[in-house]
Design a protein around this nucleic acid. Structure first.
Lengths: 220, 220
DNA sequence: ATTTAATAGTGTAAGAAATACACATTATAT
DNA sequence: ATATAATGTGTATTTCTTACACTATTAAAT
């Protein structure tokens, strides 16, 4: 009547125009040498969300990361030694925050690596299914959630925002129509700052106003 | 590192113009005498979905019920004796199918009763939160899912369909606009049959064409 | 036979949102 | 000066959403 209880994290970021997911190369039975989602057991007196935060910190060196529960996976045959229930979470990080961070490689994994979600290796357990669930979730909610802004630095150009939308929706958008829509959202602040270090016309920077966003979505 | 593992079911139906949820009066510690969602332990070699189907059959006498996983709840303090992880499911049934069915009252519960979701009693554990999650989920997905039709008999009038939409969205809709929209869905069949047993003009009956529905949503 | 009560069923105009589409502007590097 | 590479902008068309009120049909009551 009892079961092992783990959490698995789909840690996503936006880099080089693509969504990427952080995978760990396993160094343990089962699925030794396979790539898998980072995850671990939840301790007896530990809240599930704290366990997620713990894993996220270990994998990225970051705290206070955006996270969202995806679903529970509990197939009897997930693990050869018997049921291990996992609750999958999705977490979103900005590439700049995690680049070049030194992270704790535990003994159960050999290395961590970012993979484009379009070019995933074979994955341990049901982890491919879990990643696909997270991508579906993102696609469905992109227009009504903070997810695009979790993937971007706090100041970003409209072109960058459009690229994130395109990656999340997996389709190209029209520039003028996109900007028209974005202008009507009401929760983006136009800054008086410009992109730096580019060898062409610098784009204007924008910021996400979380308070205005929340006001809007609590009203509806 | 192990935890108890249960499932809880938010069993919803549409009756008397309202969404109703099936609750069980507990006869056991903790929350003895409180109302709670029907649920139970998942057996060691039992798939989670089979456990849900088992509970649904015990509570309603029905098989092959629509079900959808909501989320996992695993708070350390949910249960006074230590963590009991529950995976919450939502299930939808038609009132006609469950009315007057004799169901198995287990020893852990005293009675089963349908409550309008607008007039819930105090609930055991975090069960109110679970019900609210299911209502939110329904509200968000009503336009893109089969849920309205799971709550209706296979032949229904447009007025009945509108009432279901209104209950799920928790707001009144305009009759003409609703019918215009419904006409454009493309997956409703107009039958050459009419409502019976009413003391006023009988309404035309419609049926949901699941195949057409799935075709549409697989294309998109 | 007529009336009453209750719900079914229907159209149009105005406004809002979504789509399709192309070129001048600006900053930097050479 | 020129080339390059990306920024930033408007309009016309179509589609969807919203607001709104009366006639038609049936069964029951008189």
């Amino acid at each position: 009547m009892q079961t092992y209880f783990t959490i698995d994290c789909v840690i996503l970021t936006f880099d080089e125009g693509q969504l990427k997911v952080l995978l760990a190369e396993r160094n343990e039975y089962p699925y030794k040498d396979w790539w898998a989602l980072p995850g671990y057991f939840v301790n007896k007196y530990e809240e599930m969300e704290d366990a997620v935060a713990r894993i996220l910190f270990e994998m990225t060196g970051l705290k206070d990361i955006y996270m969202d529960q995806l679903a529970a996976f509990a197939g009897v045959k997930r693990h050869p030694e018997g049921r291990i229930l996992t609750v999958a979470y999705m977490a979103l990080v900005q590439m700049e925050d995690v680049k070049n961070k030194i992270v704790a490689i535990s003994d159960y994994m050999r290395q961590l690596k970012w993979f484009s979600v379009d070019e995933l290796p074979d994955l341990a357990f049901d982890h491919r299914e879990i990643i696909e669930l997270s991508l579906d979730r993102l696609k469905k909610t992109v227009g009504y959630s903070t997810t695009p802004y979790e993937l971007l630095p706090s100041k970003f150009t409209l072109t960058q925002l459009q690229q994130v939308y395109e990656a999340l929706l997996n389709k190209k958008l029209d520039k003028r129509n996109f900007r028209k829509k974005i202008n009507n959202l009401g929760y983006l602040k136009e800054l008086n700052e410009f992109q730096k270090g580019v060898s062409y016309r610098a784009a204007k920077l924008y910021a996400f106003d979380k308070k205005k966003f929340q006001k809007q979505f609590n009203q509806d």
